[in-house]
Design a protein around this nucleic acid. Structure first.
Lengths: 193, 193
DNA sequence: GTCTATAGGTGGATAGAC
DNA sequence: GTCTATCCACCTATAGAC
């Protein structure tokens, strides 16, 4: 196979790379950065992930999978759609409190410098977010815990965009509360009262 | 002096660099890219802008100045605050239709890799956006062309964050209408009826 | 102001020993 | 799996001729 990225070492590489992409961007980190932190060599990293593009693609699929699991947990634990939206917002806030940007929000800004497989995976992440939100919004509207006008898809896209943008800007101010006040306001507007 | 960036050539350099930053990010372009497009040499660029940081700082101040002028024009031409917000949103949409991200939104994602003077300038851009929005929102609320609950500052921050995020994501889909539907929805929510 | 040439460093990636 | 050594392309930046 081209890449051996399935070991414990591979996971540690992914952990470090993930943090570096979320803080510095895809073009702002290098194999040398990871090697220094892992106290190994660049050559060794290339054994686990043959190319930076392969590493990047794996990062996105792992991040998406973790996000999917987190949303599944929210669905399982919280029957109220309004409260599920608050939990969704808190997933973003948790990332921000680690001084990180959403991995895919960061990659969206690097979008036109990314290899094609990574571009498609980034869009896929947003699509999955939107789909979860549409389900949640429609169910909440039916149950009257949420209210909003127009297609759920439009509201979902507004939420994803606003949350990503609020993270991006809050990070520049080192102030997570900037995200939280924006997120609270947007979710409150959907409250079915 | 350290830099001679005030000639017509300097302006052409800034035009090219601006587009490259808006599409590829600060770490995604080089003096070589500019030189190739301007059909000159990297050394010649260094005469106009001694360092990449100096070029970057100048880019932000010029972008901010142009934005300020655009907002002044909106203020002069449009007495209705709701319509001024629509014009504000359209300034973003115009950038996006050129397949570009907002310069400072892009730099916000590169934030922790930027030299300190650039970081401060990026925050300054957002501050000025927010201040203009606060003035507009408060005036619209007084005149009853706008309505919203809570501090204008919170609404202003929500708008900046949402517009930046909507640009970021719309660009990944190559679909400016994704921005426009989000922006329309957010502005419509403020309509004083 | 623009050029050639080059310095000194880092990028991603590979060969081959162990 | 990890290492040393190395390749070559590219990076920002400077020296000095024109």
């Amino acid at each position: 196979m081209a890449t051996h990225g399935n070991s414990k070492t591979a996971d540690r590489i992914l952990d470090i790379a993930e943090r570096l992409v979320q803080t510095q961007g895809y073009n702002g980190f290098s194999y040398a950065d990871i090697a220094a932190e892992l106290k190994t060599t660049k050559a060794s990293l290339h054994y686990h992930f043959a190319t930076k593009a392969a590493l990047g693609t794996r990062l996105i699929s792992r991040y998406g999978e973790n996000f999917r699991r987190a949303l599944e947990a929210v669905d399982g634990e919280e029957p109220n759609a309004l409260r599920r939206l608050r939990r969704y917002a808190d997933l973003y806030a948790q990332v921000l409190r680690k001084d990180r940007m959403c991995l895919c929000g960061m990659l969206a800004s690097d979008f036109f410098t990314l290899p094609k497989p990574m571009r498609e995976a980034v869009r896929g992440f947003f699509d999955k977010n939107e789909a979860w939100l549409v389900r949640t919004l429609e169910e909440g509207r039916r149950a009257r815990t949420l209210q909003f006008a127009g297609p759920a898809e439009e509201v979902a896209r507004t939420l994803v965009a606003s949350f990503e943008g609020a993270m991006l800007i809050a990070r520049s101010y080192g102030d997570a509360s900037r995200f939280e006040s924006v997120a609270s306001r947007l979710v409150a507007q959907l409250d079915g009262k």
